[in-house]
Structures are given as C-alpha cells and as structure tokens.
Nucleic acid binder design. Structure first.
Lengths: 152, 152
DNA sequence: GTACATTCAATTGCGAACAATTAAATGTGA
DNA sequence: TCACATTTAATTGTTCGCAATTGAATGTAC
C-alpha cells in the first residue's frame, strides 16, 4: 500500500476512533486526578458518588446499570467508600439478595466540596459548553449503539 | 434547584462528557473482546501490536509516547507479548538504557489475521465512515487540549 | 409444596493503569 | 576527570475492570 493512502488505512492507530476514545478517557482521568485527590476519591468512586448524590439508598445493581459496571468492580469499590465513611451498606429487608447503598452525612457533605469539579474540567477542555454538549450527545449515541450490538 | 433545570446541572452524571467518553471506551472494549480473543490479545496489547505493525524495532519509550502509557504499564504487558512469542525484547547496543521491541515472525503474521477487526468495529458502530472520522478528529482535538493542560 | 430456574452480591484470578521509587546508563559542566 | 543531573526501564503497591464461579434469596411451574 502506498504511503499516501495511509490516511485511509483502517489498520493504522491514528485512524481508529476507539483509540481516540481510549486515550481521551485516560487524558480526562489525568486531569481529574489532582482535583479528586483533594476529595479523597478516585474517578470511578467519584462516578458512584455522582449517582448517589442524585438518588440515595439504591441497590448495587442500580448503580451498576447506570455506570455499566458489575458487582466484581463495585463490591470492593463500595467497601472502600464505606471504609472512608462516605456510604453505608445494608441488606434490604424486603429482598435480602440486595445490598442498599446510602450516603452518610459526610457523603452528603462531600457534594458541596465537589461542586467546583465540573467547572475545572470545563476550563481544561478549553471548549464552549455547547460544543461539549454536542460532542457528548454524539459519543453517548455511539456508546448506546455499541452496547446494543453486545446485547445482540 | 427545580427539576426542569437538571439538564443544565453540571453535577449530574448524564451531563458530563467525561462519563460519556469513559463509558464509550468500555463499550468499545466489550465489542473488541470476542474479536481479540481469537487473536489471543487484550485491547491494550492490540494497540501495542498496531504500533509495531507500523514500525518495528522501537524502544519502549516510543511505544509509550504513542499510546500515552508509561513503563509501569508497558513492561509487564510486553513481557506477556514476549511470552506469547509475538515480540522480542533486546537491550540496545548503542544506548543500553533502551530496550528495543521487535516483532517475531508470528508477530508479523498476526497482522493478516487482524485485518478484519477494524471492519467489524465499523459495523458495530452502525455509522458512516465520514461521521466516525469527524467524531474521531473532535475527540483527538479534545484529548490533546486536555493533555496540554496536564503539561501546564 | 416441591423441583427448577433466576436474581443478586460476593469472591477469585488476571490484566491493565499509574504513582513512586530504584538502578543503571548516559549526558553535562566545572 | 569527576560530580551531578537526566534518561530509561524495571519494580512495588493500590485501584479498576471483567470473566467465571459461588451461595443465598426469590420466583415459577408443575
């Protein structure tokens, strides 16, 4: 294959949208790191807290469905959040298979400390809100099409 | 805050582009998994192979710069590729700090077996090539702006 | 009401990802 | 030359992410 056609070679790293997404996710992670260190959270832990700040006292499964994560990831993560006194884990009385995750007062309070985080990310993105919203919607649509394929 | 303004709440999970990127990366990973299982590769290993298929016999550092990964990730990964007889690791004679990564014949041969992978991903994306290229360019530009902030 | 299947969380094991440190090789300045 | 800084890969330790399995609770069919 001639070199001038490399821009069309689907087997080239730089032509793959998945690598763009993969490397952008890591770049976001690196920007978040210093911000979340101050809150004592990792990025996946921050995602769980975002879910709980919207709605509290939910089973592990609900958190997993929103974040596309399973119990193998969430169980140890939630135990670390419990060890940090941010959440409480209790078996549901109605259905003893479920473990309900509730925020502690410290967990609720952390929401205020985290309020500045999205603005810092927006600044680092160096991009207008409307552009970011448009990109976000495109990426979510792509993600949902990919997830639809997985479920056959 | 009234519920009708939730679409503007920057602290809501669904309003965050980083979660869109994060969850899209995982969705890609799940689509790749069955395809790469047949090649005996994980997705990060596949990325390293893409780099090597473009240019062979390069130091670990070069691979790290292209993939935004450090030696803590690459050293064990490359050892697994070596154990699978896909690459060879040799100290450079000119600069003994460097370890050069070269493809074995099996490593070269795997490129042909991997040729169908990008097409399968394109099909799963359920999207035109031109749309994907446009999205890819936007995401890469965003990633590069984020990485620029990290380097201050 | 007793088999059977399903659901849910936890567990185990493996492969990333990264911070922090170490050690060796190389480069630089006095 | 010698002291010092820089570069490069490897190592250690922690946290994700997921496949596969386990075990307990619940639901369903007969």
């Amino acid at each position: 294959m001639p070199r001038k056609l490399s821009a069309l070679d689907p087997q080239r790293l730089d032509n793959q949208i998945c690598f763009a997404v993969y490397s952008a996710a890591h770049a976001f992670n690196r920007v978040y790191k210093p911000l979340l260190d101050r809150l004592g959270l990792t990025y996946p832990q921050y995602l769980v807290m975002l879910v709980l700040w919207e709605r509290d006292d939910v089973p592990v499964k609900d958190i997993g469905e929103k974040l596309f994560l399973d119990s193998g990831t969430l169980t140890p993560l939630l135990k670390r959040l419990e060890a940090a006194h941010l959440v409480k884990r209790t078996r549901s009385r109605e259905d003893e298979r479920q473990v309900l995750i509730a925020l502690t007062p410290q967990g609720h309070a952390l929401k205020e400390k985290a309020r500045a985080v999205p603005h810092s990310i927006l600044a680092a993105s160096d991009c207008s809100v409307s552009e970011l919203v448009a990109m976000k919607d495109e990426i979510v649509a792509l993600r949902d099409r990919l997830n639809a394929v997985i479920g056959e």
